[in-house]
Amino acid sequence: MFFIPLYDDNPTRRTPVVTIALIALCILVYGWQVSLGPRGGELAVYAYGVVPAVLFGYAELPDALQVVPSWATVATSMFLHGGVLHLGGNMLYLWIFGNNVEDSMGRGRFLLFYLLCGAAAALTQSLASPLSEVPMLGASGAIGGVLGAYLVLHPRANVRVLMWIIIFVRLINVPALIVLGVWFLGQILSGVATPTSDEGGVAFWAHVGGFVAGALLVFPFKRRGVEVLEPAHSTPFAVMPASAAVRRRGSVPDAGNRWRR
């Protein structure tokens, strides 16, 4: 059985300019990483990714890799990715959930919110393994913050999920409370079960830290008058054939040794 979210049922009032710009920037940066070749790309990860031991002053990078101050890597690391699947998965979630959160805050506030959530995510993972010399990279910590905010704002919104069971392909409306709640619980359980080490992998605690930060920061960042716990705009658990994807009514179209956020 295979599940993948495609879009939600929430309309938006404004074009999500910041969300689109963040996606475009991540894609451009990944293209730049690839253009450097394997060795150059690896060096860029160390130069612009978050290395906890360097961030906290327990280690230093070689002079040639000290391109930006260590504190600045908390921001630069959000735009690096470790592969096409890493990039694609992150951008899909940002595309699905980012537009409604941006709509609730406005463009300037949403950008600041996104960066703060990413910083909270990087710090959470770094505090979990402060002596690690493995670089962290990826947007999913910041996107975790977007998911946390979305859950507070639209827990009853339905996410159109593609369900693939052997040869049967269907679309099903799943409430965001379930989709995001299961995702968050999975990050906690995976973080507990996966000891921090110098072998890299998925930075589960970054996801948790970003999600919690987003769920809390949504209150001061949302526009005045924007309500939380909004109702759904479609029927939960409705099942449709896969061809229904082209008749969507939601707000969003179909859309190495390192810690990946």
Score class of each variant (00 low, 15 high):
Pro5Leu: 12
Asp8Thr: 13
Thr12Phe: 01
Arg13Asp: 09
Val17Ser: 08
Val17Gln: 04
Thr19Gly: 02
Leu22Asn: 07
Leu25Cys: 11
Leu25Thr: 14
Leu25Gly: 04
Ile27Gln: 10
Leu28Phe: 15
Val29Pro: 05
Tyr30Gly: 05
Gln33Met: 08
Leu36Glu: 08
Arg39Ala: 15
Gly40Thr: 06
Gly40Phe: 04
Gly41Asp: 01
Ala44Ile: 01
Tyr46Lys: 12
Val50Cys: 06
Val50Lys: 02
Val51Ser: 04
Leu55Ile: 03
Gly57Asp: 03
Glu60Pro: 00
Asp63Glu: 14
Ala64Trp: 03
Val67Gly: 02
Ser70Ala: 15
Ser70Thr: 05
Thr76Gly: 02
Met78Gln: 15
Leu80Trp: 14
Gly82Arg: 09
Leu94Pro: 06
Gly98Pro: 00
Asn99Trp: 10
Glu102Gly: 07
Glu102Arg: 06
Arg107Ile: 00
Arg109Val: 11
Phe110Trp: 08
Tyr114His: 12
Tyr114Asp: 04
Leu116Gly: 08
Cys117Phe: 12
Gly118Tyr: 04
Ala120Gly: 09
Ala120Tyr: 05
Ala122Thr: 11
Thr124Leu: 09
Leu127Cys: 14
Pro130Cys: 02
Glu133Leu: 11
Gly141Ser: 11
Ile143Arg: 09
Gly144Arg: 06
Gly145Lys: 10
Leu153Glu: 11
Leu153Gln: 10
Arg156Thr: 02
Arg156Asn: 13
Val159Phe: 09
Val161Ala: 06
Leu162Glu: 00
Ile165Lys: 13
Ile166Pro: 00
Phe168Gly: 01
Arg170Leu: 10
Val174Glu: 02
Pro175Met: 08
Leu177Met: 13
Val179Cys: 14
Val179Ser: 13
Gly181Tyr: 04
Val182Thr: 12
Trp183Ile: 05
Trp183Asn: 15
Ser190Leu: 07
Ala193Trp: 00
Ala193Val: 01
Thr196His: 12
Thr196Gly: 14
Thr196Cys: 05
Asp198Trp: 00
Gly200Ile: 11
Val202Ala: 07
Val202Arg: 00
Ala203Val: 01
Phe204Met: 11
Val208Thr: 09
Phe211Pro: 14
Val212Asp: 06
Ala213Val: 12
Leu217Met: 11
Arg223Trp: 03
Gly225Tyr: 05
Glu227Trp: 02
Glu227Tyr: 01
Glu230Arg: 15
Pro231Trp: 09
Pro241Val: 00
Ala242Thr: 10
Ser243Arg: 13
Ser243Met: 03
Arg247Val: 00
Arg248Phe: 13
Gly256Cys: 04
Arg258Cys: 08
Arg260Glu: 15
